[in-house]
Design a protein around this nucleic acid. Structure first.
Lengths: 167, 167
DNA sequence: AATTTTATGTCAGCCTTGTTGACTTTCCAA
DNA sequence: TTGGAAAGTCAACAAGGCTGACATAAAATT
């Protein structure tokens, strides 16, 4: 299938609305699976997904500022602030006053924060690892390619910026 | 890369935690893009994602029951009921008393409901279509394979059941 | 026929996590 | 040095999850 080729010699994709709809439903159901394991752990600690996201990206970019986190997460500062406050109160996140600019807060995980983040990341990575294993290497490549193409340009910029020099 | 093979002759995947973490972040950012376009339309009508999901799956399985919808959506009946009630009041969804079993309600979209659902589906499919086009046919196959592997078994059952006989 | 189970709807109340608006503190630049 | 921009905080509200309790009607079982 899909053997016909367009002017540039690239294979044309003849995707029916029905096939596209299945992709949409796949995203819906898969995202549920994607969040299911962390959600269970978070519930035991009395946290929600918003806390998970904060922990994830703080660990990912230590000493990041609140503003940077805001633009990654795409929520209002008031919304993020509430989550950050509880994480700071509970001793999972440390907010140090910025050195250059005292208005800024440099956010970092404490040992306790690292511990919870690792617990969450472990189960989520394991789910991802099993899915990758079942699907095989070629599928993994395609998976990431389509996901990246689905992002808004701003988000794609964040996504690529988060990638370190490794790989 | 990944040329080594395991006992069964299958290529082994050597995925670092870092690579898995990127898959996780790709899911996060891509899901934002996935919902961005419908969210804008929904807001104009005063609805949220919950309404979108209900419209989508009612259109997908016309004359479905409330119970079936509940198990697909994975929310409580109280939560779904609130959404359904507004959709019925606004004349987008029709709930007919079941024929065989009068306890059941058969849910269907009205013309007005079909119209909104189509508007939502159009923009979401367009995003999906462009992503597929950019990524190419092989990537599309891999994308769907990984997503399916990521689902919980219950959700995968729903996912496959929703597929009609076509394709 | 009486009882139990099932499907659905509803009310009340709670929680998380989004939102806007108003405010303070800090910094920087005109 | 002063006015505006940026960072953060507080208050209040809304959407949409949740639980629990209860009502009704229909079906299934005894």
């Amino acid at each position: 299938m899909n053997e016909r080729r367009g002017p540039g010699g690239q294979p044309l994709l003849f995707l029916t609305d029905e096939q596209l709809r299945r992709g949409i439903e796949a995203m819906f159901f898969a995202y549920r699976g994607f969040t299911a394991d962390p959600d269970r752990i978070l519930q035991k600690h009395g946290y929600g997904r918003a806390h998970h996201r904060a922990l994830h990206f703080i660990r990912r970019s230590p000493d990041t500022t609140v503003n940077n986190l805001l633009s990654i997460l795409g929520v209002t500062k008031q919304s993020l602030n509430r989550v950050l406050r509880t994480l700071i109160e509970d001793g999972l996140v440390e907010a140090k006053v910025g050195t250059r600019d005292k208005r800024e807060r440099n956010l970092a995980l404490t040992d306790k924060g690292v511990e919870l983040e690792r617990e969450l990341a472990d189960v989520q990575r394991e789910r991802m690892r099993l899915a990758y294993r079942d699907a095989g290497p070629d599928a993994v490549q395609g998976f990431r390619t389509v996901l990246e193409a689905m992002m808004d340009p701003d988000m794609r910029r964040h996504f690529n910026r988060l990638m370190g020099p490794e790989e």
